[in-house]
Design a binder for these strands. Sequence first.
DNA 1: GAAGCGTGGTC
DNA 2: TGACCAAGCTT
Length: 371
Amino acid sequence: MPASPARQKARRQAVPDSAYPRLLLAWYDRHRRALPWRALPGQAADPYRVWLSEIMLQQTTVKAVGPYFEKFLARWPSVAALGRASQDDVLRMWAGLGYYSRARNLFACAVAVSRDHGGAFPDTEVGLRALPGIGPYTAAAIAAIAFGRHCMPVDGNIERVVSRLFATEDALPQAKPKISQLALTLAGEARAGDSAQALMDLGATICTPKKPACALCPLNEDCAARARGDQETFPRKAPKVTGKLRRGAAFVVTRGDELLVRTRAEKGLLGGMTEVPGSDWIAGQDDTIARQQAPALPGVARWQRKPGLVNHVFTHFPLELVVYTAAVPARSRAPDGMRFVKIATLQHEALPNLMRKVIAHGLGDGKPIRR
DNA sequence: GAAGCGTGGTC
DNA sequence: TGACCAAGCTT
């Protein structure tokens, strides 16, 4: 298709073009991805499925979300059903997916929708925004996809597509408002939800971070960054800092076929999740200090240091744990705040992946803890 | 506004 | 292999 005069102008001046929504939707109708939470073409989306998927998809890949979405939907088919669950059940089901505050907020949101909204999600961006775990992106996504509101969620995909299309020089996150404003010009009047999903699909499959497939892009003739040949350098971003290595010790204590565990504090890192007792995690800490934070266990003949280390990388710091093991007599009691659980039933605990690694290392049987 | 918050995949 | 990225939210 030859570029219209308006689109040639867009190429030079990075100005929104009224043809973008139409081009985008035409592409979407041919190339949309089939995803478990997506309605069939032309059908109304189920707000519960849209919400559940959007929460799971925050900073998480489609591939990782798939099985979790199916599991949740099978166990809790409606927001009312989820609202009647317990937070601990939700955390157990969420274990392994990461960012556990999402699971706590998911449950809190289900309770709020059931209790304060008669079991129906608010159908406006503002109404949705007031619910736990729903921020600017998710509110706009649900409002557009589930309720057809004329708004545009801006995720990492859409930031990339839009920043390339208009070659926006400002670095993120400062550029967020400008990109958000430009993104809204890409929303169709009638099909705002499809417009949003079209941009996300485009970002996920064509306008990728590296080696974008510009030849296949419906907006390629209009893309300011492509005209300059530096697509991959967008979006501009402020440099991010990686955290310092922290070290600590973890203590794997068995009593016959049971393991000593405790529950982490409700908030913060791995909040509300199950762990084995351990030391603080501190940059520059040495083994001896960490070792001294072992739980007081009468009857422990000696701690055994497991050869090797458990390494784990969080978003904001890498972690290196030394693992100590001990076996206590059959009738030993768990220290205050801790409990013994059957090793065979660990799969039912809310165990973050870090702890699965620690326990597998400590038990030394090479068997991963099933999920 | 910046920092805290998981995990897995990619190059 | 370390850095980056993935449908961000909360404080």
